[in-house]
Design a binder for these strands. Structure first.
Lengths: 154, 154
DNA sequence: AAATATTAGTTGTATATTACAACCATGTGC
DNA sequence: GCACATGGTTGTAATATACAACTAATATTT
């Protein structure tokens, strides 16, 4: 007989598909405000948190290609939310920093995002929350390790 | 003071970003074979499982726009993996069905996918698995409910 | 039965996200 | 100094996606 996919395998498959649906739903803009998309907000938030951030660090954090990093930052620079300065220590490097407007927008989006995040939180029974978060991380890590294995093989 | 985002909120935010990373990694093709992407495989698998599937049902399952559904199916039809027939019951409807080649490819991809899925599974301590899967689903549901709320509001 | 509304699907158009390859500039190690 | 590594950008292309406008067919309401 053909090798059959196990029930557990199906379960994972179905979860992955659910993940993709959930992600799509929360990356659509209705959730947000100030014309900032989810991924743009991440960047704004990371930069704002650290004060300054090298593009290379951002590239690490997002784990996307360098070129993608550049392109994700560009619209934020164009909207006047982020500054792009040359580093003095290493003149290859670019340092990102929020403008005043960037800081304001970050705060505003934080507020409207936190409404959404509260809703997510309240959707999980309180006593299970910590546990659920931990489990989700376990799952994500497992996926990423599995991907890494695959990449080595090929 | 400004309204601050809570630690829990940050946790969720960070998980969502992790989700997006994990998803990207497993939607990249190295994981797969036979030139079929993850989402293409989903379709192949859904159709294969049911025997026949109406486009409208697929649209439901994937929860993407109708037009997107059409466009996701098109390459599979072009590669000769899926047949697109008019329904006799409802002549508006399109019925999807796997070709012989489609069936073969589905099986092949199932095999190579199951390697990946086993790796995911083995990345989670055995005694925790059932629990982890359940938690992930809880989390996904919470996100989707939160999205739905947001959409009503606007 | 006619008018209206709903459902199924396609096509045009536009956008976001993404990678890879090629490239340039600058640093680093020997 | 040369070879190699690192940081970043640009060209190009693919995928996934939505929304709006449209056609055709079916269902519902009067």
């Amino acid at each position: 007989m053909c090798q059959q996919i196990s029930a557990n395998n199906r379960e994972i498959l179905s979860i992955i598909s659910g993940v993709s649906r959930a992600l799509r739903c929360c990356q659509q803009e209705p959730v947000f405000c100030e014309d900032v998309t989810f991924s743009q907000f991440f960047i704004l938030d990371r930069v704002g948190e650290k004060g300054t951030l090298r593009l290379a660090e951002l590239h690490e954090i997002l784990s996307v290609d360098k070129s993608t990093t550049t392109r994700l930052v560009t619209p934020l620079v164009n909207q006047g939310l982020v500054l792009r300065k040359k580093s003095k220590d290493d003149s290859r490097a670019i340092i990102l920093k929020l403008t005043q407007k960037g800081k304001r927008i970050r705060e505003k989006v934080l507020v409207c995002l936190s409404e959404f995040l509260d809703n997510v939180e309240n959707g999980i029974p309180q006593e299970k929350r910590a546990h659920v978060y931990e489990s989700v991380r376990l799952f994500l890590d497992a996926i990423q390790r599995a991907c890494a294995v695959d990449q080595c093989r090929s």
